[in-house]
C-alpha cells in the first residue's frame, strides 16, 4: 500500500513492541489537511501508541511515517522535537497543564518554546483563550479552574501555534458528557477554522462521531472503515 495521494500525514505497516507486549502490529494510517480522523478501539489496543508514533514522540520499531513528504524515521530526536513544537499540537486526557504557571502562561508555553517573546506569546494566547471562551481564566492557575475549563485551556494551548496536525488523546476522557460535548465542539470548530488535521484517539463512539472518518485499531492492527465499506 502507498499512502493515499494528498495525505498530510501517513503511516504504513507500523510495528512497535514494549518488551514482550506488542502494541502495534502492522498498523496503517493517513490523514488529509483539515480532516478529523478518529482512532478507535478498546483499551490496550494500541491506539495511544499509534498516536505517539504518528506524532514522532516514539519511534516505531519498523514501518514508515511520512509527514508532508518527509520521513520521520530519518529525523533525529531534536528535529522531531522541533517538528512537534512548530507543526503539531497536543491535547491530553487530563489537560496536563503546568500547575505553577497561570492559564495564559500555559497557553503561551508552546509559542515560547518556539522562541516567541513573552509579551507576544501571551497576546496570541489570550486570543485563543477568547475563542475557547476561557479568557476570563487567564490569570488563574490550573488548580483553580474546573476540569472542563482546564481542558479548554489545554485545547487553546494545543492550537496556539496554529499547528498543521492536532493530536488529541481522549480529550474528553475526564469530563462529563456536557463538558465533553462542548470541548469537542470547540475543538473541531477551531481545528476546521485553521484547517488543521485532527487525530482524535478515543474509545467513545459519541466522541468519534465528531470526526469525518474513523480508523479502528484492534490488537495492534488498524482498519480503515471507509475503505472497508
Amino acid at each position: 500500500m502507498t499512502p493515499p495521494p494528498g495525505s498530510l500525514l501517513a503511516a504504513e505497516d507500523l510495528r512497535k513492541a514494549y518488551g514482550p507486549t506488542v502494541a502495534l502490529d502492522g498498523a496503517a494510517f493517513s490523514i488529509h489537511p483539515g480532516e478529523v480522523v478518529a482512532v478507535m478501539g478498546p483499551s490496550g489496543s494500541g491506539k495511544s501508541t499509534l498516536l505517539h508514533c504518528l506524532a514522532g514522540i516514539v519511534p516505531p520499531d519498523s514501518g514508515s511515517i511520512t509527514y508532508a513528504g518527509r520521513e520521520l524515521a530519518t529525523m533525529n530526536d531534536a528535529q522531531r522535537s522541533a517538528l512537534r513544537r512548530s507543526e503539531f499540537g497536543f491535547v491530553f486526557q487530563f489537560g496536563q497543564l503546568v500547575p505553577e504557571l497561570t492559564c495564559v502562561e500555559n497557553v503561551a508555553l508552546p509559542l515560547r518554546l518556539n522562541g516567541t517573546s513573552r509579551r507576544e506569546a501571551e497576546r496570541t494566547a489570550l486570543g485563543w483563550m477568547e475563542r475557547l471562551e476561557v479568557d476570563d481564566l487567564a490569570k488563574k492557575r490550573p488548580g483553580e479552574v474546573s476540569g472542563g475549563q482546564g481542558q479548554r485551556v489545554a485545547v487553546a494551548r494545543a492550537l496556539v501555534t496554529t499547528p498543521k496536525v492536532l493530536f488529541a488523546d481522549e480529550p474528553t476522557g475526564a469530563l462529563d458528557s456536557l463538558n465533553g460535548e462542548r470541548v469537542m465542539e470547540l475543538l473541531t470548530d477551531a481545528a476546521r477554522s485553521t484547517s488543521a488535521a485532527v487525530v482524535l484517539v478515543t474509545h467513545e463512539a459519541r466522541v468519534a462521531a465528531w470526526s469525518d472518518r474513523e480508523i479502528v485499531v484492534r490488537d495492534g492492527k488498524s482498519r480503515d472503515m471507509e475503505r472497508a465499506v
Binding site: A205, R206, A208, A209, W210, S211, D212, E214, V216, M225, E226, A228, V229
Partner: peptide, 10 residues
C-alpha cells in the same frame, strides 16, 4: 455494522 452506526452518529 459499527461503521454504519458511526455514519449515522456522524
Amino acid at each position: 455494522q459499527r461503521a454504519e452506526h458511526l455514519r449515522s452518529m456522524r
